[in-house]
Nucleic acid binder design. Sequence first.
DNA 1: CTTCAATAACGAGGATACGCATAGTTTTCG
DNA 2: CGAAAACTATGCGTATCCTCGTTATTGAAG
Lengths: 223, 223
Amino acid sequence: MRILVIEDETKVGCFIKRALEEESYAVDLCEDGAKGLQMAFATNYDLLIVDLMLPSLPGLDVLKGVRQAKIQTPILILTAQSQVDQRVKGLDAGADDYLTKPFAIDELLARIRALLRRGATEGSGVLQIDDLVLNPATREVTRDGQRIDLTSKEYALLEYLMRHTGRVLTRPMISEHVWNQDFDTFTNVIDVYVNYLRNKIDRGRSKKLIHTIRGSGYMLKAD
Amino acid sequence: MRILVIEDETKVGCFIKRALEEESYAVDLCEDGAKGLQMAFATNYDLLIVDLMLPSLPGLDVLKGVRQAKIQTPILILTAQSQVDQRVKGLDAGADDYLTKPFAIDELLARIRALLRRGATEGSGVLQIDDLVLNPATREVTRDGQRIDLTSKEYALLEYLMRHTGRVLTRPMISEHVWNQDFDTFTNVIDVYVNYLRNKIDRGRSKKLIHTIRGSGYMLKAD
DNA sequence: CTTCAATAACGAGGATACGCATAGTTTTCG
DNA sequence: CGAAAACTATGCGTATCCTCGTTATTGAAG
């Protein structure tokens, strides 16, 4: 999952970035509103986090700009305690949720999970394909009730696959959302990690969930 | 589907080419505006992707040249972040859509699908003839609800046929759009692949969809 | 109706590129 | 510093692609 953070306070921004990366999200940080808006156009993010107090361009305008461009990406806004009216305007302008500064990092992570969840299984909170269950809140993965331990990258890859079940995902797409690179470096990292996942998830099972689409990419599917 | 990419930055160009080829498009890459214009005249492309910043000939002139020649091929332009006015001029000059660099590859792919879709079933997103359904987003093909597995080339061929249902498609036409060769080397690859498709799609069915037009080529049709 | 040439369909097999597996190397982090 | 994770490098097996040669079909001419 790839997230853009637009936050001018360097300290806060870096803190958020680090926290999110520890949760296996791919994170881009931007300290300038105008530039952030461009980045939002340029890249297909899964979530935007926008501080409403920004220097060059007010956060509210970033919001409007994104929504005018018909980009449906969920947006979480950050406001100061005092800016109650700002918050309301933000939600009116198309934000999906808000958080007042200062906030607890756990609170932020919980809201993010909630927002990302919307596009997926809708409601339940866990992602599920056949007997494979992934719980983003606890980062716990089970198959047939049995616990499966994954490394950070393995988890990030699986989550991306599960959020796009039944669709063919090309290597460039995976590279963008799970790794943080826009341009291909001609490596086989993705192949290797798909292999790791297979060993932990499909190895020894009759029903395979990870399928390769030769010449195209990979797909997660029950049938 | 055959796509011409006019992009002077070798790295970006190669990346786009690879990504498109993974989606089973036939791709020509050209790093020079003047030459690209010639290629656009010479070959009947399904889509043009043009970078507006080119060395020899400005991308805008390529655009104008193509449109002056009454070529209706959809055009997608690439612009840098700063060139907002360029983008507007581009759209005025006949471009159908734009993308600012850097961009997300799946954003590009989505736009391409949208542009190619226009000429077809218009809107729904899936191509359908009788009980044969092809979904370009998932690259999934079904007949009578039953899943059909196709290789990359088989899929590319079928998509081309389905986008031109009811029209006679000559071998040179097929060769140009599905394979990457302008001039046939007197092989029978096409015949062979039509045969493969028949085995998977028409074999054992009373209603045949793939028809041979002796002396001309092939046609996909329900009747 | 038969014959014949042109065209298309089909089957078999070889070359190649793709993806998998495994082992080795670098990096991160406690 | 050591262990785990992230990444790179490489060889191998095979699905896919394509060629080639043979068989079947078609349509026109006799």
